[in-house]
Write a protein that binds this DNA or RNA. Structure first.
Lengths: 226, 226
DNA sequence: CGGAGGGTTGATTCCCCTCAAAATCAGTGG
DNA sequence: CCACTGATTTTGAGGGGAATCAACCCTCCG
């Protein structure tokens, strides 16, 4: 990146804020609010149906954008909840547009990040649409592990994971009860263990085969910036 | 839009091409290919699993981008198939980056289009994750109708629809047999009829209530360009 | 006229949901 | 120190929605 690009990037990291676990930062239907870059902690974006069911669209880990789409659509079509206490830096619409006009290549980079987000949502869609519960869980844990590894928070051995079985259920379109059963079968088959806030890949290779996991869509090298 | 913006837009509409129904224009895993803007006809983007199952991610109708994400990620993570014969204009990476650097506001507009795409995928995710088959079908047909209305190809009365029940099944994560049953119950309940390539909303209001359909995420006014 | 693609319906199976009830654990206050 | 509460995990029993398997119909088309 060039010097100007870096300085524009720096300018985006001015307003640092923190949020406590459980209290939404963004509400479905909210207008004109800012986006954030997640510095530390975990969050999730979700939608609530009228009957109270909820579907978690994605989990965000350090380095991810929060609410980028909301900024562009001028209204949030989903809610965002911090799962742990989180630290973020705020990015306003003005910031983004400024950055875009000053350095088009930066716009491309943000665009690329958004494309990666969408690719993850698509993979999530495949998960829920066409994979059985066990494969779905396996694929989901592998994707999470791969993403965390990219930011140094995980490896092929496993990763620390603050998610409850209820959160997993809301993300995977399952009931919490069934999540528990699926985790048991995966554990007993010796592929992966989720216990005490830690996911352990007991057999990474068998798990990837079982889940048909192909991490290309997470490839972290922003190709257009090479 | 300004004059330069319009001329840049014009430059994007040079290379016009046609593709016949059924033959993929983009293959999963393909490198470095172009994006397209759909002029006429219908297409769908999908992914295939190893066991041969397929999940349709989205249908594209006139005015939509095809493969925008593939361009930015430098590789296609999905395939695109024309459902009918289609007419498109080709947009290369170079075109896009040129356009971005010449007119940042145009970049924002394209970005907004991508956000809208993602919002639709998210809504699709909710559909499959948390709605029963009948609600899912109802919601899907309403969304399609709303999108088609925006480009003058539909109304609250209904729309012409070239999709087979197999395609609907692959999109909604159902079996073709079950799609047929669901369509029957919806027809017999007097809410919507899908017959002979035409979707008729027999009772638009009851259908929207039944499906909890909220079209805000399709709002067509690109807010940032106002 | 035969074959392919699409639509329709019935019978059976099974995956996952719902309901229900323990067990465990962290925190909290008496 | 211990009773009490709430959140989370675990396990069982029963039911239902959707898949699968299997026909049969229709239309279109080479």
């Amino acid at each position: 990146m060039s010097g100007t690009e870096l300085s524009v990037l720096d300018a985006l990291h001015k307003r640092r804020r923190t949020f406590v676990a459980g209290r939404d930062l963004v509400h479905q239907g909210q207008l004109d609010q800012a986006a954030y870059i997640l510095i530390s902690g975990w969050a999730c974006s979700y939608k609530i149906l009228e009957d109270g069911q909820r579907q978690i669209v994605d989990f965000q880990i350090p380095g991810d954008f929060l609410g980028l789409r909301s900024v562009l659509l001028h209204m949030s079509d989903h809610s965002i909840e911090p799962i742990t206490d989180i630290e973020v830096t705020e990015v306003t619409v003005a910031d983004l547009l400024d950055a875009f006009s000053q350095t088009p290549r930066l716009a491309t980079a943000v665009f690329w990040a958004a494309s990666r987000d969408e690719a993850m949502v698509v993979e999530h869609l495949i998960d829920i649409g066409r994979r059985a519960a066990a494969e779905r869980m396996a694929h989901f844990l592998l994707e999470l592990g791969a993403r965390l590894s990219l930011v140094g928070l995980g490896s092929k051995a496993g990763f620390a994971c603050p998610l409850s079985q209820y959160l997993l259920a809301d993300a995977l379109g399952l009931s919490a009860v069934h999540v528990n059963r699926v985790l048991r079968t995966l554990r007993e088959s010796g592929m992966v263990t989720f216990r005490d806030g830690f996911v352990t890949f007991d057999s990474y290779s068998r798990l990837t085969e079982f889940a048909e996991f192909d991490p290309v869509y997470l490839d972290h090298t922003g190709p257009l910036l090479r």
